[in-house]
Design a protein around this nucleic acid. Structure first.
Lengths: 251, 251
DNA sequence: TTCGAAACGTTGTCAGACAACATTTCGAGT
DNA sequence: ACTCGAAATGTTGTCTGACAACGTTTCGAA
């Protein structure tokens, strides 16, 4: 473990240090809880400044490999590598997820988004409403101009999630939206405009927004349900398979 | 957007900045590729030094939300989240300091698990029931022997998710369960046995199982709701804050 | 008009210092 | 001799200032 001049292959020095540090941890198979060297000694070992060491450790910290305690030191984390969730998607066909998977993911989305709409109706502030209104207006413009608005479509759903004032739900929604951004493309394509799919989706968005604006939780949930069912149909899925809580929505 | 008025109780300043930055990114403009403010301007906005900003950005970089190009600036990543979703950042302090975060995660769990129980009731096969019954029996044994059964508790919830025959829901449940395995420990500790928390949780598990066994979707959802509310109470959280669809469960 | 070099802005790295916190050591008091 | 609190020491967290490496823009000369 030395600071060989070959470390320039990665333009960022801190990245190289982080990589070597992580390799060193795993290769030394340090059990969880063991303390790793102090920043100063690491500086000497790698021959870099403390800022670089700190950035490298910061990366490992974000990765969940290590934790730090001020005044005490840095330690390898309890459960390294178990801190993230990723949807199975074939790296080869990175843009397209398989049909069965997409249906499954859509159902998961359904569970989260309907609940999020309901809670957003109960907790939304004036700011939240304004943010949603702005995105909605942008989509309306796109509808008139017959242009693409996939990003705003995504942003609208994230805005709903933000209105729940639950950061985790907002982050999950952003995560799911990113996975689906390409699957929303057909709605806003020129063909989508021509066939009325875009107008249909926009009307559903407005209905959700109005329910949240009225603080009508039940209506918000049902509007979100309707929107997701329609969105699934637009994608050629069969929503009847997973729109399970119909008993409650119709009640 | 200024950060100074809110006195940050989080021990690490960079953590607070990273969180606010991430929230700001998701709220403001979700479009990928947009450049975010320079480090210097962020320093002024947040009222912190550049080192803190750099550490915060480093974390977002490790999370995959942003990328940086030397000499050019920092940009939100092409794929925000880059296909992975992370819940708890710092497993060490998660239970004590970031109680608000845990409450948020619990609400997300609530949304998914109640829907999963409902769908499991509609789709479960005999095999699914048998798997759940086996796990339940193991927990019953542990209850009699007053020993730990956190793993089986986890497995039971995963078994429910598997009974939905939705791979994504099952995987998400497994992911969340891994995050929460330590938070379930108090229930199955010796103190948990003594105070009846373990017996209480087991009774709730049985109720969920029976509803799924009867294919009673509504009862399954309500039993799952009740279980999660109780679990939150056992953790010292306030479930009233997020048990939003009480109107439906109690009717 | 075109092209190249200088100027400027931004991120990457370095160095030193102090603050906040944890642990250890040691001395005063009993 | 023992206990307990305070000081000393070590570690991470934050601040400040500076320079290097790199991109982008601007502007002057051919």
């Amino acid at each position: 473990m030395n600071a060989s001049p070959t470390a320039k292959r990665t333009s960022r020095l801190s990245d190289a240090v982080a990589e070597q540090l992580e390799r060193w941890i795993t290769e030394q198979h340090l059990t969880s809880g063991t303390q790793l060297p102090t920043e100063k000694s690491l500086c000497e070992r790698f021959g870099v400044s403390r800022a670089v060491i700190r950035e490298a450790i910061s990366r490992l910290k974000a990765d969940g490999c290590v934790t730090t305690r001020q005044g005490s030191g840095a330690f390898v984390a309890a459960r390294p590598g178990q801190g993230s969730f990723r949807l199975v998607r074939d790296p080869e066909h990175s843009s397209s997820i398989m049909a069965g998977e997409i249906s499954d993911i859509f159902e998961l989305r359904y569970l989260v988004e309907t609940g999020a709409a309901e809670r957003a109706a109960l907790r939304r502030t004036a700011e939240d409403l304004e943010r949603m209104r702005a995105v909605l207006a942008r989509m309306q413009d796109a509808l008139v101009a017959q242009v693409d608005a996939v990003g705003d479509d995504d942003a609208f759903h994230v805005a709903i999630a933000i209105a729940t004032h639950n950061l985790q739900i907002a982050r999950f929604q952003a995560f799911m939206g990113a996975q689906f951004s390409d699957s929303r493309a057909p709605t806003w394509s020129s063909d989508g405009h021509r066939s009325g799919r875009a107008r249909e989706a926009q009307a559903e968005h407005v209905r959700i927004f109005e329910a949240i604006s009225r603080s009508d939780a039940k209506a918000a949930r049902e509007a979100a349900q309707a929107h997701l069912v329609s969105a699934a149909r637009r994608l050629g899925l069969d929503p009847l398979l997973w729109a399970g809580d119909k008993t409650e929505s119709t009640r």
